[in-house]
Amino acid sequence: MIRYENVGKIFPGDFVALEDVSLVIEKGEFVSVIGPSGAGKSTLLKLLYAEEQPTSGQVLFDGRDLATIKKRHLPYYRRNIGTVFQDFKLLSEKTVFKNVSYALEVAGKTTQEINEEVPEILDIVGLADKMEKYPNQLSGGERQKVSLARALIHRPVIIVADEPTGNLDPNSSWDIIKLLMKINDLGTTVILATHDREVVDKLNKRVVALEKGKIVSDCKKGKYVC
């Protein structure tokens, strides 16, 4: 479903983020991308949701080269991918409900649809009773759940999580990981970038290790060190 073919990415100032990366991710997989800071994990994910374009090589989604997607069609493509980040990226002046409904509003869903779908998804992540709270009234773990709910609202085929547990304590981290596993069990592909050794070891799923922009290992049922 996702195919990186000899992908290279060089940022201005000749900073090589990725070098000759080839990787195939099948539908329904749960892949952890690990590596130290600056290894190229985030860049690898950004190429997938077309926030960045590769300098060389191709990134294909269902056989289609992402570089060929017209700029104005990108928003529609991005609705296939739910994104979760370390810093949550929530709007502080909007309630939990609004933060999630926002994603449906921009897609032109009716108020009725929004009022049905948002509580449903908030229930799945366990925040049904906090819909009217603001982000600063929530714990870190809860904020990440809001972010996850927002990522799920379009029923994406892929969830991209870039260090989602980076700012969380171990308990909250595990809550988020369990949710990601649940989503994966329902058929959604999950790509998790992390350097949380404990999380990766517990998952026991495929692990791709990056170092200095190159893939150094790719293990089917891996631990942090496979």
């Binding site: 949701y49 928003p75 991005r78 609705r79 926002y102 994603a103 921009v106 897609a107 927002r150 379009h154």
Partner: peptide, 11 residues
């Protein structure tokens, strides 16, 4: 954030 959740440029 709008871009990430798939808002079109027009929106």
């Amino acid at each position: 954030i709008m871009r990430l959740v798939g808002a079109s440029n027009m929106y």
